[in-house]
């Protein structure tokens, strides 16, 4: 086989990670029915065929439950990461272009970064009445500040770029300046930030749900599975928490790898490596 160059390898890894994540998401969505199915003839089975991850105290298939939970987590993660990245982009760019807005937004950013993350997610989630909406609002409204600050700094620097100042002198309308000169330069930061926000969002969703401030307990979310399984850990049913927990870590690592490969492809300082 022909040897791949660095860039092709990075692209391949990126596509592979994306494919695995997509497969998990789809599989989970298709298995939702099986995950809810109770069967009292197969209570508390240890991992074996055909139940790879075992079954729980209501005879539900843990493999299906784990996949469904991951799928839900990924979907929530995707939604919240996108919402918060877009908030970050809009606020960051607006702040950099307007001095008064900048004062307000910078203050907001400092405020949000000053409060512990998990506390903020819990408070917002509670305010929105928990459940799906609560989690999405909580996670997406608390994850924008660091990316917003990064983008704001970037825009402030770009504003001083001679090519932008010259375009302004040539009479290029403001709208075109932003679209043509600002946004393309922000794209690498934005995309990398967006992808790296996924694991964050997923972990936070799982933790608020685990703590009982997130998704309701009838949904097969990873957080719900973990918090229920905690009660059975002492009775020797280790598989109930171990496999879902490992799977969650695996998904987070996959997203981190995805972000890292994306950064390698987009980062100008290593673009020819």
């Amino acid at each position: 086989m022909r040897r791949l160059n660095q860039r092709q390898r990075a692209l391949l890894l990126l596509l592979l990670a994306a494919a695995v994540l997509l497969a998990i998401t789809l599989a989970g969505a298709l298995l939702t029915g099986r995950a809810m199915e109770t069967d009292f003839s197969r209570l508390n089975l240890a991992p074996d065929l055909p139940y790879l991850f075992g079954t729980d105290w209501m005879g539900r298939d843990m493999f299906a439950r784990t996949l469904t939970g991951l799928s839900l987590s990924i979907r929530i993660g995707a939604l919240t990461a996108c919402v918060s990245a877009v908030i970050a982009l809009v606020l960051g760019v607006a702040a950099a272009l307007n001095r008064k807005l900048d004062a307000v937004f910078s203050w907001c950013i400092d405020l949000f970064l000053g409060i512990p993350h998990i506390l903020l997610v819990m408070l917002i989630s509670l305010a929105f009445g928990r459940g799906f909406l609560g989690v999405v609002a909580g996670v997406s409204l608390s994850h924008w500040p660091s990316l917003a600050r990064l983008l704001r700094g970037e825009v402030l620097q770009l504003r001083q770029a001679p090519y932008l100042r010259l375009a302004r002198k040539l009479g290029v309308p403001r709208r075109d300046l932003i679209r043509r000169h600002l946004l393309p330069h922000l794209l690498p930061q934005f995309l990398t930030g967006l992808i790296l926000q996924f694991p964050h969002a997923i972990l936070h969703e799982a933790s608020v749900t685990f703590l009982g401030f997130g998704l309701s307990s009838e949904q097969p979310a990873i957080g719900v599975i973990l918090s229920e399984s905690m009660r059975y850990l002492t009775t020797g049913r280790w598989w109930l928490a171990l496999f879902p927990g490992l799977a969650l870590v695996g998904v987070v690592l996959l997203f981190a790898a995805l972000g890292e490969q994306a950064r390698r492809l987009l980062d100008p300082s290593s673009i020819h490596q």
């Binding site: 770029a161 001679p162 090519y163 932008l164 010259l166 375009a167 002198k169 040539l170 009479g171 290029v172 075109d176 043509r180 000169h181 393309p184 330069h185």
Partner: peptide
């Protein structure tokens, strides 16, 4: 602006991410 300046270092006044045809005709 009716008064246009041409800079000493052309590479600083051309957006590195735009093809030159776009930069050329942007106004």
């Amino acid at each position: 602006c009716p008064v246009q300046m041409i800079w000493q270092h052309p590479e600083t006044v051309l957006d590195p991410l735009l093809p030159l045809g776009v930069s050329l005709n942007e106004a």
